[in-house]
Amino acid sequence: MSTKKDEAKKSDKKIERVRIMGSLERAVDEIDRLLAGSTDEVEIDFSTCTFIAVEGLEWLEELLLRADSVKRTVRFVNVPPTIYKVFKISHIESLMKAAGGVSSTKLGPAC
């Protein structure tokens, strides 16, 4: 796995975008560092992410928890369907939220 960093400044907020390249199998130090620094918002770009391992899911969930506790925003962008489906099946509310989706565990109308 490797990452590619883009920086974008919108208004006075400091937004950083990091792209996941290939498999996400463990913590991405660079993102952990960004969250610990002065960045307001981190956008994780999944467009080139090809696989997420259990460890990757666990890290993402933990990352979102950490971001929440320091009042920072982490957003998932450009999530391909195979990865989005992994989020759906995982039933982890925070992942769905970060990906801009709705929870997959809520029961809808049945027929």
Partner: peptide, 12 residues
């Protein structure tokens, strides 16, 4: 939870 995450990952 372990089983759930694993099932999610298995889908790939």
């Amino acid at each position: 939870r372990q089983a759930r995450l694993s099932a999610a990952v298995f889908s790939q």
